[in-house]
Design a binder for these strands. Structure first.
Lengths: 346, 346
DNA sequence: TTGTACGCGTTATCAT
DNA sequence: ATGATAACGCGTACAA
C-alpha cells in the first residue's frame, strides 16, 4: 500500500475497482463495452485505467473466455531462397493484420505433413485458429484441422468446397500470360513445372494448357515437364527442350527460372535472341539477372493479410467468402522481346 | 456421461481425478513431477492421461504459474532480399529450439525503434521473454525491455555489459579474412559498408581495420566507405574506388556485394582479373553470380537456436553466458584469385 | 503420500 | 446501472 509498488507488480481489475469505489464487474464492463453501464462511470474507469496504466492479463481473459487471441501460421521449411520471399511476406502480412486486431501470430515450421506441432497447439488450446501457407491435394494438415474442428484458412487453391482459401488467380494469370506470349509472335511455349501434388503448381499448369487452347494450339508432350524437383532435372529438361525447336520456356516459378537462366547462360544461349524465357512467379530474385524477365507479379503480403482477416472473421463467427481470389500483374520484359521484326517468317 | 462426448469437450484435470478416484492435486503432481507422489498412482495417472488424451489448458496453467510458455522474436521489416535469409533462418532456429522446450514463438515485425508492439505484449503478459534480431548502438527496444524487466537476448554485439547477446564473431572473421586477402598478394583492400549505428556493421569494420594493421598497413580514408545505404551510393563509391588503384573491394554484406558485382559488370570490369571482390557475409544470393565470391559464412539457424536456448535458460532463472560467440567459415573462391602468378612483383 | 482449500485475474450470470 | 458470486482449469501451501 506504500508509494513504492509502482512498476513492480501488475495492477489488476480489482485494484482499479477498489480505487474507484466500484465493483470489479463494473470495471470489466467499462473495458469490454459489453453490458449496460453509466456513461459517467465508464469514462471515470477508462480514465483511471489510462492514467494508472492498467492492462488486462491475457491468460486470465483467455481462461474466462476460452479465447487466446493467438493464431498460428504454418510455414514450410524453406529450402530455397526463391521460396522465401513468398512465405515470409505472407507471414508479415498476416502478422500486420493480426496486430491490427489485437491478435498475435505464432509461427510453426513443419513440413511433410507432420501434424504433431499443430496437435500440440490445438490440444493445449494455445491458438484460436490457423493459417496454412501451403496446400497439398491430399493435405494432412487440412485433414487434421477439420477433424479437430479448428478454424483455418489455407493459402492456395482447392477443389474441396468446404475449406476456406485465399489465393492469387494463378490459373487466370498463367492463361493470360501464355495468350500474351503467343500474341507476340512466339510459336511454341515449353513448360517447366514442379510436382502437381501442390495445388498452386496444378493451377498454373492448367492455365498454361488453356492459354494454348485459347490460341488454337495443343499442348505438346515433348516440351512439357511437370515433375521437376532438383536443379539437375531442370537443366536436363532444358537440354531436351533445346532439341525440340521451342522458342520460349515458361517457368512455373523463380526456382526453375533461376536454373533455366543459368543453364542457358552456361551454354552461351542468348535470351531473348535464341530463347525466350518467362516465369509464372516474380520474386526479388529475378531482379538480379542481367536480363529482365517477363513474369507474373503477385502481392504476397496482401495474401497474408487477407488470410488473417478472413480467419479472424471466422473465429468471430462471421460468414466469410469461401474462396478469396486476389489480382495479379503481368510484367512484360526483355526476356520475351522478339529480336527480329519478322516474327511470321520462318 | 454418455459415449458421445469424445472430441467435443475438453477433458480437465478434475475429470481425470474423478475417474481415478484421486484428487485433482494428485493429478497435477503426477503431471508436473513436483511434490511427492507414489510411484504407483503416478503411473496410473500418466497412463490414464495418455489413453484418454488429456492435455492441460495452457491459459489456466499460465494464469496459475504466471508463465506463458511463449516467447517473442522481434523482426525488422526486411526491405531487401539479401537480409531475408538471415532473419528468417534466425527465426526458424529459434522456433525449433522453442518447440523442443514446449515453448511457442510469436513473431513481431517492427522497425525504427517503435516499441508499441512490444509494450502491448509485455503489458498483457503474453510472453515470458524476447529475442531481438537486430541491435542498434542506441536501441529503443533494449532500453524498454530493461526498464520493463523482461528477459531478453539480443542477436548482435554490444558494449553494454549487462545485456545478453548471441552473435557470430564478425570482428574476428573480418580480421582473418582481410589477413588472408593480403597474404594472397592483394595490395590495397577497399571497404564498403553501411551505417555504423548497427553494431554488426561496426564490428566488421573494426575487423577490417585491425586486419590491415596486422599486416602493417594503415587504413586509407579514400578507399573506405561506412555510410552506404542506397544502391546508388554504392555504385558511386565503386566509381571513386576505381580511380584510386585499389585491387580489391571488401563488401560488408551481400546487399552491397550485389551492387558492386553488378556495377563492375556494367562497366565491363572483370572479376577477379581487374578487380577482386569479397563479402563479409554469404547468403544464398551469392550463389546466383557468374563468379563465385570469396566470403564469410555463418550458420544463421544456429544463432537463432542458441538465442532461444539462452533466453529459455534465463527465464528458468539459470545463469547464462553473457556473450555467446559462434564460429565462422571463410570460403575462398574465384573472385579473389590472383590472375598472375607473380604476386610479389609490381 | 495424498487431499483440502484457496489463489491466479477475468468474464458472465443473476440479483438488486 | 451496478454489485456479489460463481465459474474458467490449474498449481500449491497447508493440513492430514
Amino acid at each position: 500500500m506504500d508509494i513504492k509498488d509502482q512498476s513492480k507488480e501488475n495492477i489488476t481489475i480489482h485494484d482499479v475497482a477498489k480505487a474507484l469505489g466500484v465493483s470489479a464487474s463494473t470495471v470489466s464492463r467499462a473495458i469490454s463495452g459489453k453490458g449496460r453501464i453509466g456513461e459517467g462511470t465508464r469514462r471515470r474507469v477508462l480514465q483511471y485505467i489510462d492514467e494508472n496504466s492498467f492492462y488486462p492479463n491475457a491468460s486470465a481473459r483467455s481462461l474466462a473466455q476460452s479465447k487466446t487471441y493467438n493464431i498460428a501460421i504454418i510455414m514450410p521449411e524453406v529450402k530455397d531462397l526463391v521460396d522465401m520471399p513468398f512465405f515470409h511476406s505472407c507471414m508479415h502480412g498476416a502478422e500486420e493484420a493480426a496486430q491490427l486486431n489485437d491478435y498475435d501470430l505464432l509461427v510453426v515450421t513443419t513440413d511433410g505433413g507432420n501434424t504433431k506441432p499443430l496437435e500440440r497447439m490445438v490440444n493445449n488450446r494455445k491458438v484460436d485458429g490457423m493459417i496454412l501457407t501451403r496446400l497439398y491435394k491430399h493435405d494432412a494438415f487440412v485433414e487434421y484441422l477439420k477433424s479437430a474442428g479448428i478454424p483455418f484458412v489455407a493459402i492456395g487453391n482447392s477443389d474441396d468446397k468446404d475449406i476456406v482459401t485465399v489465393d492469387h488467380d494463378n490459373y487466370g494469370a498463367c492463361r493470360e500470360l501464355v495468350a500474351l506470349l503467343l500474341s507476340k509472335g512466339i510459336k511454341r511455349v515449353a513448360y517447366l513445372g514442379g510436382g502437381l501434388n501442390q495445388t498452386v503448381n496444378e493451377k498454373r499448369y492448367e492455365g498454361y494448357v488453356d492459354g494454348l487452347k485459347d490460341a488454337g494450339k495443343k499442348p505438346e508432350k515433348s516440351i512439357i515437364y511437370t515433375d521437376l524437383v532438383t536443379r539437375i532435372q531442370v537443366s536436363k529438361a532444358v537440354e531436351e527442350i533445346l532439341k525440340t525447336g521451342a522458342d520460349c520456356i515458361l517457368c512455373q516459378d523463380d526456382y526453375i527460372c533461376d536454373e533455366v537462366v543459368h543453364h542457358l547462360a552456361e551454354k552461351g544461349i542468348k535470351i531473348p535472341k535464341q530463347m525466350k524465357v518467362a516465369s509464372c512467379h516474380h520474386s526479388k530474385l529475378l531482379d538480379n539477372y542481367p536480363v529482365t524477365i517477363t513474369s507474373l507479379k503477385f502481392d504476397t503480403m496482401e495474401i497474408g493479410r487477407r488470410a488473417c482477416q478472413t480467419l479472424l472473421s471466422m473465429i468471430s463467427g462471421e460468414d466469410v467468402p469461401k474462396n478469396t481470389v486476389l489480382d495479379y500483374e503481368i510484367n512484360l520484359k526483355e526476356s520475351t522481346k522478339s529480336s527480329t521484326k519478322s516474327s511470321d517468317k520462318a
